[in-house]
Design a binder for these strands. Structure first.
Lengths: 209, 209
DNA sequence: TCAATAATAGAACGACCGTGCTATTGATTC
DNA sequence: GAATCAATAGCACGGTCGTTCTATTATTGA
């Protein structure tokens, strides 16, 4: 009812959100280069110029889509992990959420993984944005490793950055097996690898230096 | 001298090889979708139709490029690893070569990694070819793990496929750190992760089940 | 050397790309 | 309800895409 006066969502933002919703879905399976104005216009049922006006350029459209991807990852994977105390418990929760967030968002693949391999050798704003977000996640992991060391859960010999490096490797291998092999064992492989990572960090003789 | 009569290399194969050389280089940094007829024609200094005639379709061009990539990997990484005896030694050599082969071939990134993320959700001959080659490599790794188990180097509790899964993860993380972060520690991270993988497989209490 | 044939070039096609312009429709405010 | 401004459509542009057809040049084999 009190939707008049001081209404911010000026209708355009709704359609913009609808566009980005389709763009995110598209980027997951087809990549960010396939986010063409024409195809998105067809999928949303609007005109090319009408859609284009919301972003001003294809690059802005890609950046906006990446922002939305990050927003959903934050909402679906990162924020829920904060429910667990910092350290191994939060690492475990973050890991599980990291593997499941695409499915929870109704995506068939991980847009961040697509973005990484599409832009890692292509200098520009997209590359910078992708690298920045991945670094943020790595730092979040490393921070929890540090917390685990301080609380005595992990050995002091563990290198937080090494841990983050290996954790990303497990996730990457998991997404590969899932989309390339459709291997039913994939989930268990990832779980086992993560368990081994944790176990090695716990024992003082860990070679995760 | 006896280059007349029965000469097989009918000149066209030389230009085809020259095209594929540029195509491989292009696929490494720009991806396989960027293998456009026009850009390759410009880079090789020939006409679009002249280049096109060598392949008949873009998809055939992509498949031929992938074949050439695999050929170089085999030559630069796989075959040399056979110099070491099957088991941990060959695994170690294969791992090192796997990380270095792109540099040895003068490539700035790994075309196989590009191909994987470009086609893993795109049904068709390219996807099938990529999946087939990755499976081949996984099986090669798993085979050496089995050899290591039989020779007593590895614990019998080790699962060869789990080992291959984790090894791929390390390589993937390494290529990411290299191209996205330009992290100088990347090589050491990969080496440490591999060492941990080997160590866990050696001890009978390995959780790499 | 000469015919046969392989290799390449040229021009053109319909389709789609990103982007700018100008209308026109729709919503918000008074 | 009229004025205002945001939101969208229509149309056109130059460019590149993959592909086809027809010519022209190189290379080959006798």
């Amino acid at each position: 009812m009190p939707s008049h006066h001081k209404r911010i969502a000026r209708k355009g933002e709704e359609t913009r959100a609808a566009i980005l919703d389709i763009a995110v879905r598209q980027s997951a399976t087809q990549g960010f280069d396939a986010l063409t104005i024409g195809s998105l216009a067809a999928l949303t049922g609007m005109s090319k110029s009408g859609l284009f006006a919301h972003f001003g350029s294809k690059e802005e459209l890609q950046l906006a889509t990446l922002d939305e991807v990050v927003r959903r990852f934050t909402e679906t994977a990162y924020l829920p992990s904060l429910a667990a105390p910092a350290g191994t418990q939060r690492l475990n929760l973050l890991f599980v959420n990291w593997l499941l967030w695409t499915e929870r968002c109704g995506l068939k693949a991980c847009p961040m993984m697509s973005a990484m391999s599409e832009f890692d050798d292509q200098p520009g704003p997209m590359r910078d944005a992708v690298a920045h977000q991945m670094r943020r996640l790595d730092r979040e992991v490393a921070g929890n490793v540090r917390a685990a060391i301080e609380s005595g859960e992990f050995s002091g010999a563990v290198t937080p950055e090494q841990f983050a490096f290996e954790l990303f490797g497990i996730v990457a291998a998991c997404y590969r097996n899932h989309s390339l092999y459709q291997d039913a064992e994939t989930g268990n492989r990832a779980k086992a690898a993560f368990q081994r990572l944790i176990d090695c960090a716990r024992s003082p003789s860990a070679s995760t230096t």
